[in-house]
């Protein structure tokens, strides 16, 4: 009997000790307890409670650990998910932390986490540059930039923006060409990306050249698809449209020429544009230059 009472007392003591560790403790401490045991779902449960608690959500550590727990959840469960909500939640928590961590207790460590999360967004953006997922790529690239700005508001993304947009435009164009879907909607979409690049860097050769070619190809496609049966009044109207497009193409191609970007193709573009504009003198001028370049390269 005495032995039975002893065992029962021992069991009660052990279970009380287990419960006792939480008595009077806050959500963050409970979350940390589970975090140390790598029980991320339980850690999430308590850190979420802490973040909703009026007292605890005023503390920097609450948001730091929320960021940490969610970053770990992302790494362990959603690493391959380009739209991971854990990652976004981690960034959001760390953003809150930076706002309230006035003594900079957690700022350095949080910055490292943010930079890591930003790098995953950038890599996902690069991986999503496909015809099917490019909107995801744009979204992740925008999130990458906003995340980087949290820790370094002075960062300048111009060079990276140019690189990203050129890759995007090139991919969309190649896909549309392959699928024979270089229609006005796609052309407009691609052209506007190149125009975005020129807004950043007016001397970008690739964008100038490609906008020039897009306008040229639009006109050439109209002419290519003309029926021989077309009446002369309609032909006149279409000539107006095409001359307008050739004129739009001209300044971009001339800029590419000025920049000596992809010179051989640029000269070919100018020859074609002036041919389309029936400007024999200019066509001959650029043709001569193209021939000279070809001779030099032979």
């Amino acid at each position: 009997m005495k032995r039975g009472i002893y065992i029962l007392s021992l069991i009660l003591l052990i279970s009380n000790l287990a419960m006792a560790q939480f008595i009077g403790k806050d959500g963050v401490s409970k979350a940390l307890f589970y975090l140390q045991k790598s029980e991320l779902d339980s850690a999430k449960k308590y850190i979420d409670e802490a973040a909703l608690n009026e007292e605890e959500n005023k503390l920097a550590k609450t948001w730091y650990y929320k960021g940490f727990v969610y970053k770990e959840l992302y790494k362990n469960k959603e690493k391959d998910d380009k739209n991971s909500t854990y990652r976004l939640e981690a960034i959001s928590a760390l953003e809150n932390l930076l706002q309230i961590d006035t003594v900079k207790e957690f700022t350095e460590s949080a910055s490292k986490m943010l930079n890591y999360l930003a790098s995953t967004l950038y890599n996902d953006a690069a991986r999503s540059l496909t015809p099917q997922h490019y909107e995801e790529a744009q979204s992740n690239y925008a999130k990458y930039k906003s995340t980087m700005l949290l820790t370094n508001p002075e960062l300048n993304f111009d060079a990276q923006d140019v690189k990203f947009k050129l890759a995007l435009a090139s991919m969309l164009n190649q896909h549309a060409e392959q699928e024979n879907k270089l229609d006005s909607i796609n052309v407009h979409k691609i052209k506007s990306i190149y125009e975005d690049v020129l807004a950043i860097d007016a001397d970008n050769g690739s964008s100038n050249y490609n906008i020039g070619i897009l306008y040229y190809n639009e006109a050439a496609s109209i002419i290519n698809n003309m029926d021989y049966d077309m009446d002369l009044e309609s032909l006149d109207k279409l000539q107006d449209v095409c001359v307008g497009l050739f004129h739009k193409s001209e300044p971009y191609m001339l800029k590419s020429y000025e920049l000596k970007w992809n010179l051989k193709e640029t000269l070919l573009g100018l020859v074609n544009i002036y041919h389309g504009l029936n400007d024999l003198e200019k066509e001959a001028f650029y043709k001569k230059e193209l021939e000279a370049l070809n001779d030099k390269n032979d």
């Binding site: 050129l166 090139s170 190649q174 190809n217 050439a220 032909l235 992809n262 074609n272 041919h275 389309g276």
Partner: peptide, 19 residues
């Protein structure tokens, strides 16, 4: 991330087609 240019799609002589 790489990018490349593309070429004029001028499979047709535009002036000749109009003529």
């Amino acid at each position: 991330m790489i990018h490349s240019g593309f070429k004029p799609g001028g499979v047709v002589d535009t002036n000749a087609k109009i003529k």
